[in-house]
Design a binder for these strands. Structure first.
Lengths: 128, 128
DNA sequence: TGACTGTACTATAAGTAATAATACAGTTAA
DNA sequence: TTAACTGTATTATTACTTATAGTACAGTCA
């Protein structure tokens, strides 16, 4: 499914969160699709089940997945009420990055071309 | 100069790094301008000088400031050889954010308008 | 029934973050 | 030259975080 970096950079549970989020966002995991169980994924990645549990728990509070006791963890369909605040957060992070790119003299046209390329790529790969 | 959030969110030294970076990036601190001394800033923020020192040290290894022993820490002028790798890092982070914005159905035109607005704002405020 | 699920709890070890107190050596202005 | 400032380094201590380990409980389901 994915691999982790053990060289003490980021905490393992943070890495798991990021990887899972990426799979959900790029559509590799569909809404209501089941995630690997905590024990299963722990064995695959050879880490402790508690670490997976921590990652899943935070993904749930952030609205990316939901969990059903004794059945599993599942990809949460997009909820309208989550969109607005999350979009605002993302735009805030975006502004910092763009500000630094401007500081590095990134031309406006070039950055916009980059954005358009990302949209085009996602448009082509979407199959949901 | 700025304030810190003591409610255990992010480490203090990380917050200091971010705030200083922001001041450098938006031009509030000019190249070769002197930063507050570690003891001075520590007193202002009522935190430990070692915490400031840690932040400054990392800002130096990241190329944002340089330090002269017994004189102070200073804003580093932009170095050509730093630009390329840093720009690549930023574009990488940018791609993750844009991917999530697309997941949240942000229209391409709207995102581009946001980017243009940021450029316009920075253009107006630039006085270096 | 048996094997799977999520969840909870306790304990332990290692690492990180922050504070505190000193110390040393170079700069600079009075 | 002195006094007050600079960055830097070191050691110690405390609290928190990260990760592991083991165990347990209750619900699901073939």
């Amino acid at each position: 499914m994915f691999q982790l970096d053990r060289q003490g950079n980021k905490p393992l549970y943070e890495q798991i969160k990021e990887k899972m989020k990426a799979l959900i966002i790029n559509g590799a995991l569909k809404p209501d699709e089941r995630l690997p169980s905590v024990r299963e994924l722990a064995q695959t990645l050879t880490i402790n089940p508690n670490t997976i549990q921590k990652a899943y728990k935070e993904l749930e509070t952030e609205g990316f997945i939901y969990s059903i006791r004794a059945k599993g963890n599942f990809v949460a369909p997009l909820e309208q009420k989550i969109i607005r605040p999350r979009r605002d957060e993302l735009k805030n992070e975006l502004e910092k990055i763009v500000a630094e790119l401007i500081y590095l003299h990134e031309p406006q046209e070039q950055l916009i071309a980059t954005i358009q390329a990302i949209y085009k790529e996602k448009e082509e790969k979407k199959d949901d």
